[in-house]
């Protein structure tokens, strides 16, 4: 049987330890989001059942609670995905600023629909992203954690073409 140490690399465990120090000793589960983030990164951007179980065991919380967190937040993926994740905000402010055409443009450019991954495994377009708290700069998107605002087709080309 695989142990937690087999599933979570040393650097992930170190990262979790780092976050555990930031919370009171009896509130270890507070570190679950950064722990899942680190574990997801190690696994190429998505979480397996095994990884979620390992995080639960490492932190000492019920497995179901980890699944709850991993299914709640859109930044956690539970299916294999591309190297780069594109999250286009489609919530009301961005929608008024034309996010629909941003989505359409990226879909046509990459030849995939929201929720799909390109055949070369380079890009994943996340499904229906909600407000990402950059309403002043809509339409906007987040690619691999970086915010890009006031999007135009040219700007999108530059951003996506610049990724390897």
């Amino acid at each position: 049987m695989q142990t937690v140490n087999d599933v979570l690399s040393e650097s992930v465990r170190k990262e979790i330890e780092h976050w555990l120090t930031k919370f009171p000793a009896d509130r270890r589960e507070s570190a679950v989001i950064p722990a899942l983030t680190a574990a997801q990164e190690q696994n190429g951007g998505w979480l397996t059942e095994e990884i979620m179980n390992a995080v639960a065991e490492y932190i000492g919380m019920p497995r179901v609670s980890v699944y709850e967190v991993a299914t709640f937040y859109s930044m956690f993926d539970r299916e294999p995905c591309g190297r780069h994740k594109i999250n286009v905000c489609t919530n009301i402010c961005c929608m008024l600023m034309g996010s629909d055409s941003v989505v359409e443009y990226i879909e046509n450019k990459l030849g995939i629909k929201q929720g799909e991954t390109t055949a070369d495994g380079k890009f994943t377009m996340k499904i229906e992203e909600e407000c990402l708290a950059a309403c002043g700069g809509g339409p906007m998107m987040v690619v691999d954690g970086h915010y890009y605002e006031k999007l135009t087709p040219e700007k999108i080309d530059t951003i996506l073409d610049g990724l390897d």
Partner: peptide
């Protein structure tokens, strides 16, 4: 005594 059920998704 065990958390066997949870609320998945949102």
């Amino acid at each position: 005594g065990d958390k066997e059920l949870g609320g998945m998704g949102r």
